[in-house]
Computed example of a mutant assay.
Amino acid sequence: MTRLSVFLTTFIALGAVIMVAPFVWLVIATTHTTGEIFSTPPHLLPGTAFWDNLSGLFTENRFGDAIRNSVVVSATSTVLGVFICSAAGYAFAKFDFPGRTLIFGVILASMTLPSQVTLVPLFQIMVSAGWLNSYPALILPNLAVPFGIFLMRQAMQGVPDELLQAARIDGAGEARVFFQVVLPVMRPALSALAIFLFLGQWNDFVYPLTVLRTADAYTVPVALASLQGVSSTDYGQLLTGTFLSVVPVLILFLFLQRQFVAGLLAGSVKQ
């Protein structure tokens, strides 16, 4: 190996250690009590308090309800969001209709708006609809995501028009072309979009905090925030809940990592 190769390998390995170290510490901290977590010198080996932390988290703080709510909301938003964004991306990429450029420009412009700008209008809409503290309040505003439409439009442009025309000549309707021809070849992009939508919904904190009113409706981020007391905080339970909140995202990414990388490159190279 050349000196440059040795340097690059060492640099990458060091970077990997720096990135993984906080997660390793999080796993170790879930097995200790609050006093042990803040002890000096710090504990670098697993302790024996994991099951106590886990029991307190689920029995005293109803963290199971939060996980259920987050799974239902994130999974539903992801499935419906992928369908809506892919359908919109297909329309913008493959159909020529009046105002297409203007509408797509408005969608791109909306990506520049901070989420805080739409927080009050969304809250007023949910109050008027009577959806506060419910699943629809969390799911519906996150279905037509501007970034998702943009990503799918760019990916759909890579689908050959000849393939679509051949399917139409064979008698396939537009719905069949979309579901049986376009979507199968868009799996990498769909996987990438699914990860983005799931992660965004799973980690969302400010909006759920605004529209949720009772502890049994909390999502995971809101439930974790509620574990921080005014005078004292059980950091053993807090870090255990944080660890549990990371696991579903890791599983999803590991399951879709190949498609995720391929999806990010979709549409980056023109034929």
Rank of each mutant, 00 (worst) to 15 (best):
I139N: 08
D65S: 13
P121I: 05
E162C: 02
V261P: 03
L238R: 01
E174R: 14
G56V: 09
L244I: 14
H32V: 10
V73Q: 12
L113V: 15
V145R: 04
R100A: 11
V246R: 05
N133A: 10
T2M: 03
V261T: 14
Q237V: 11
G263E: 07
P41H: 13
K270D: 03
L140F: 14
F23W: 10
L57A: 08
Y90M: 00
S39F: 02
R62P: 00
S55L: 03
R213P: 00
F58R: 07
T118R: 13
V82F: 02
D52N: 12
N61K: 13
S128K: 15
S5F: 00
G64V: 07
R168M: 10
A194I: 05
A75T: 15
D96T: 12
S110Q: 09
V185Q: 13
L80V: 15
A189T: 05
I37S: 07
S134A: 09
L44Q: 03
A175R: 07
P188K: 10
L190W: 02
D234M: 07
A29C: 04
Q157C: 00
R258A: 02
D65I: 06
A167D: 09
A223T: 12
R258G: 08
A155R: 07
F38E: 07
R187A: 11
V182K: 06
V211K: 10
D65F: 09
T101L: 04
F63E: 02
Q116P: 00
L44G: 07
V246E: 03
F23N: 07
T2L: 02
T31M: 01
S5A: 15
H43F: 03
S226T: 02
S55G: 11
A166H: 08
L14W: 12
P208V: 09
L113M: 15
A13D: 07
W131G: 04
L244C: 05
A66N: 11
E60K: 14
V230Q: 14
V220C: 10
V185C: 04
L164Q: 13
Q165N: 09
L264Q: 09
V222E: 08
L239C: 05
Q116L: 14
F11G: 05
G35R: 14
T40D: 08
A166L: 04
D170K: 12
S5M: 13
L227G: 00
L113N: 11
K94S: 04
G148H: 09
R68Y: 11
I169L: 14
Q165D: 13
L143C: 06
T219N: 06
F83N: 08
Y218D: 12
A13E: 01
Q237M: 15
G171K: 10
G15N: 12
G173D: 08
M186K: 05
L264D: 04
L250K: 07
L102S: 06
G241T: 06
A172R: 12
Y207P: 06
L14D: 01
L244R: 03
S115L: 12
A109C: 00
G200R: 14
Q180H: 13
A192Y: 08
L199K: 15
Q165S: 12
S70H: 11
L132N: 13
Q180E: 13
E36D: 12
